[in-house]
Amino acid sequence: MAERTNSKKHYRDNFTGWLLNIPYLAYTAVFFLIPLVWAVWLSTMDWNLMSPDRTFVGIRNFTGMFANPKIIAAFFNSFRYLAPIVVLCFLFGLLLALLISNLPDRIKGVTAVLFFIPYLTSGVATSVVIRFFFSYNSAFNHFLRERFDKDISWFQNPTSAFWIIIAIIVWKMSGYYALFLLSAIESIEPEVNEAAAIDGCVGFRRLVYITLPMILPTITTVIVLASGLAFGIYTEPYLLTGGGPNNATTTWLLEIYNTSFTNFRSGEGAAMAIANAVQIFVTIQLFTFVMNKLNRKFGV
């Protein structure tokens, strides 16, 4: 409150304050504001990135999307990816967190770090492993053919290709989200659990009535993070399936990349990016809204 009395003191650091922010502000202007305006303008253009002539097409880039089966597929695939990724990442993350929190203190930290390692791998490296692991002559497929007489071409089948990509992402992310949930579980006061134990609330009942409600804010974080992640899938379908078979694994990013930089229809690409952003925004808002409702109802 002492500061309040001296109003001059309030803004005493005008010079240093702005000086320290110059790099950030310059970056924001060049790599955020300008591209942002440019993107909107570009989305109304028909332009191939190189030629000097560009044509104004109004909203035709947007209306054209409805006739493009790849874009329709990308739109629906976002949700097809979203649902299993959010659910499985959360479930596996929670399972790992509960497991680790019940381990002896001595090995807790090490175990958490070991489960975190998949998060560090590049999507490119995992794609290499997965692609060769599931290739026709691999030991695994050989085994399936010899033993079970099953001959599966994993990436030609829409279902298996899709679920392989889901599995890669859940494998990679679960240990990371487990860290969030673990730290929330660990921060529950021991008294709470003791009091619950006296009331006979242990095991599964404790999980449902004590642990989950107490860590609901962190669960919200994990769900929002995982859904954001599900919208950003690119590397794995790009390397493993190219979006196929039959557009079953394609994503917005893949289609935006191909439209803008392989087919050089940058206006269309910009319009697709805006449509994608709107979809992301609406979905995340919806998730946050529902989770806040849940928080108010069951949270502590």
């Binding site: 060049v30 790599f31 955020f32 300008i34 591209p35 942002l36 440019w38 993107a39 570009l42 990135l49 919208f231 950003g232 917005w252 990013l253 935006i256 990349y257 803008s260 930089f261 940058s266 690409g269 910009a270 990016a273 805006i274 994608n276 952003a277 992301i280 925004f281």
Partner: peptide, 13 residues
């Protein structure tokens, strides 16, 4: 902000 919007203009820039 969904960064995907910035991809094409950033590339041109």
């Amino acid at each position: 902000f969904p960064g995907v919007i910035l991809l094409v203009p950033r590339y041109i820039l």
